[in-house]
Nucleic acid binder design. Structure first.
Lengths: 229, 229
DNA sequence: CTCCTTAAATTTGTAGGATGATTGGTATAG
DNA sequence: CTATACCAATCATCCTACAAATTTAAGGAG
């Protein structure tokens, strides 16, 4: 009995094609896709079939339908949306340990693969953080700090690592911000950023790993304290 | 303008309820869910609405519909299926680096949190690997080796880490098996397993981390060689 | 009684139409 | 010009019908 029902149903075919259109950028993020009537003709399927395909991508977080308005592309990354939703249900300390795992490895890879553009971006982020502290602009500081770490991971040149890290960091930033008492003074351990930057610049894997551990360690300590209150 | 379209559509409501039933185990994995006719009455929605909800979970990998037979629960973990599909499109070496990141961190956490049950399972796996080598049973060896590493990660007591690692390891095992020439003699570096076990038993974080790096490093070297051919 | 074939019932897949709800824009009245 | 009322576009939900695949049951041959 070699026979195996390999038939791919219409709905799945349409969903795959639409996913391709999104991932490849033919349907750009934040823009509307054609209305159902047109897509029915385009894919030559019935309204039900088309809607089931759309619904699958909506649930996956790639699309968002708005009654009366249309359907817009929400994300071009299937993993991002699912992971983000999943992380939301996880414990913050668990999430931080995973972040430590990924960023430590990313920093080591970055120490090997970083190019001049990466280094320049990192320096800009550090300077922007410094400026934000001077301006007492907490929002800008968090944004620039986030961008710094994201740049480190991007310099790793490992796409899977990048895609896993991004939703993680986003979630952590939200949690930390929610926990952070606005009265808490904005403190900035600039040395850690500078040390990590130097390690990556000097292609020193070991040092890069150590500094990431220090940074996340401090974050874990802060988070634990904040949650006690 | 505080108003925000917070209306949750019927389809999404049904999908969420069904997802709950799956995750909570009311609808167990590998078993059929009630037919559409019953679910229509149960949720008090039309067939279209119900089917769109089902389709969303099918696409997410939680369900699998078979025409004429019914719909069965395929997985109780929304992340697993998505991640598995995503990893399939990633480069093996990228995947191995992510595995290194996760397993290194997991081993360190395991060195802290491991209990007697974990240690016993690890010892069983090592013994089973040894036996499989004696029997020249490649399939059993891979299965036991996989179980060993999964147990290490499980001992970390970090659910997010566990859920991320599982599909990763599964994919790597498949890739390695596909690459492996069946004529290649079955070699088993037993020392690495024993060393890692000892480190976890002795709660030696540093050593655990080093041995995982050695293990994955050897795997990366093998994979790189195999791909050259 | 057992085994095989065939027919019926069950279940999902696809199609098409109808109506309601929401949104965005347009035209009209002031 | 502004504000209201209206209209068109679009998605949300529901309904019915039939096709395709599978499972189950019935019936007959041995």
């Amino acid at each position: 009995m070699i026979h195996k029902t390999n038939r791919v149903h219409l709905v799945e075919q349409v969903a795959i094609q639409m996913e391709d259109l999104i991932v490849s950028g033919v349907w750009p993020v934040d823009e509307k896709i054609p209305p159902e009537m047109e897509l029915m003709k385009e894919f030559d399927v019935s309204r039900n079939t088309l809607r089931e395909a759309i619904r699958a991508l909506v649930h996956a977080g790639l699309l968002e339908s708005r009654q009366g308005s249309g359907t817009v592309v929400r994300s071009a990354n299937a993993l991002s949306a699912t992971l983000k939703r999943y992380i939301k249900k996880s414990a913050l300390l668990d999430t931080l340990d995973v972040r430590l795992a990924l960023e430590q490895q990313a920093a080591q890879l970055a120490a090997r693969h970083r190019n001049e553009t990466d280094l320049a971006t990192l320096e800009q982020c550090i300077e922007a953080c410094r400026q934000a502290v001077r301006d007492k602009d907490r929002k800008k500081f968090v944004a620039m700090d986030t961008r710094f770490h994201q740049t480190v991971v991007q310099a790793s040149d490992n796409q899977l690592l990048i895609d896993l890290y991004e939703p993680l960091l986003e979630n952590i930033s939200e949690s930390i911000e929610a926990l952070m008492d606005l009265k808490t003074p904005l403190k900035y351990e600039e040395e850690l950023h500078l040390d990590l930057f130097a390690a990556i610049q000097n292609k020193d894997k070991r040092a890069a790993s150590v500094y990431v551990e220090e940074y996340i360690g401090a974050l874990k300590k802060d988070a634990a304290e904040m949650m006690e209150e």
